[in-house]
C-alpha cells in the first residue's frame, strides 16, 4: 500500500504535478478574489446608497451571476470573446502571444466576476447592519460625510462583513477548478487526470481535498486574527 503510494507520487511524480496544480489554484484564487473585492466595494457602496440606475444594474448583475452555474460564466466569457480578441490582436500583430496568454486572463477574470457578485452582497449586507445610532452620533458631532464613512461606517461594516468575506474566499478558491475548461491544469483537474489514468480516484481526490484544506486552514488563521483585531471593544462585558 505505502509502496504503491511511493511509486505513484514520487516515481511517477504525481506529487509534483499536484503541487504545481496547487500553485495555479492559489495564484488564480488570490488574484481573482482581490480583483473581485476591489470592484465589489464601490459597487456595494452605490447599491447601499441606492444610487439610481447603477443600483438596479448592480442588482441585475449580482442576481445573474449568482443564479447561473459558474461553469457557464467561464464558457461564455471564453468562447464568446475569443473571436474578438483574435481579430484585435491580429490587427496589432500580437496574435501568437495573445493566443497563449488568453486562457489565463479569461480564467482570472471569470473567477473575479463570480467572486465579485458574492462580495457585493456580503458588503452591502454589512453596511446595512451598521447600527444607525452610531451614525447619528457621528452626525451630531458634525463629522463630514467622508470622515463618517471612513472612520465609522466602513470599519464597523468590515467587522460585520468578515465572516461573509471568509465564506466568499473559501468558495472562490474552490471555484478555481472551473478554469480547467479553458485548458489550465489546476489542482482539481490534475487530480482528475491522475484519478482517471491511475484508477485510484479516492486517493487522488482525497489528496486534493487535503491540499485545499491546508490552503483554507492557513487563510482561516489569517481571518481569525483579523476578526480578533476588528473585534476589539466588542468582546467581554
Amino acid at each position: 500500500m505505502l509502496g504503491d503510494l511511493w511509486v505513484l507520487m514520487v516515481e511517477q511524480s504525481w506529487a509534483l504535478a499536484l503541487l504545481k496544480g496547487s500553485v495555479v489554484t492559489i495564484a488564480i484564487g488570490l488574484i481573482g478574489m482581490a480583483l473581485g473585492f476591489l470592484v465589489a466595494t464601490p459597487l456595494a457602496i452605490m447599491r447601499w446608497r441606492k444610487v439610481v440606475v447603477v443600483s438596479q444594474l448592480v442588482d441585475g448583475y449580482s442576481i445573474l451571476v449568482r443564479g447561473v452555474p459558474g461553469l457557464l460564466v467561464i464558457y461564455l466569457l471564453f468562447f464568446g470573446s475569443i473571436e474578438w480578441v483574435k481579430a484585435i490582436t491580429a490587427a496589432f500583430g500580437y496574435q501568437d502571444s495573445a493566443d497563449n496568454a488568453y486562457p489565463y486572463i479569461v480564467g482570472v477574470v471569470a473567477i473575479a466576476v463570480i467572486s465579485c457578485a458574492y462580495s457585493i452582497e456580503v458588503i452591502r449586507g454589512a453596511l446595512q447592519a451598521v447600527p444607525y445610532g452610531l451614525l447619528e452620533a457621528a452626525q451630531s458631532l458634525a463629522l463630514p460625510k467622508g470622515v463618517t464613512f471612513m472612520r465609522v461606517t466602513f470599519p464597523l461594516a468590515l467587522r460585520l462583513a468578515l465572516g461573509g468575506i471568509n465564506n466568499v474566499w473559501q468558495m472562490t478558491i474552490k471555484d478555481t477548478s472551473l478554469v480547467s475548461v479553458v485548458g489550465l491544469q489546476e489542482l482539481m483537474r490534475t487530480a482528475a487526470i491522475g484519478a482517471g489514468i491511475t484508477r485510484s480516484p479516492l486517493l487522488f481526490y482525497c489528496i486534493a481535498a487535503a491540499l485545499f484544506f491546508c490552503m483554507t486552514a492557513v487563510s482561516q488563521t489569517a481571518f481569525s486574527s483579523a476578526e480578533r483585531a476588528l473585534d476589539r471593544g466588542f468582546r467581554g462585558r
Partner: peptide, 19 residues
C-alpha cells in the same frame, strides 16, 4: 465547519458515495 468549508464539495460527494 473547517472540514466541510475547506474541501471541494465534489470530493465530499465522492467520499460519501464511493468512499
Amino acid at each position: 465547519c473547517a472540514i466541510f468549508r475547506g474541501t471541494p464539495m465534489l470530493v465530499q460527494v465522492f467520499v460519501i458515495y464511493y468512499g
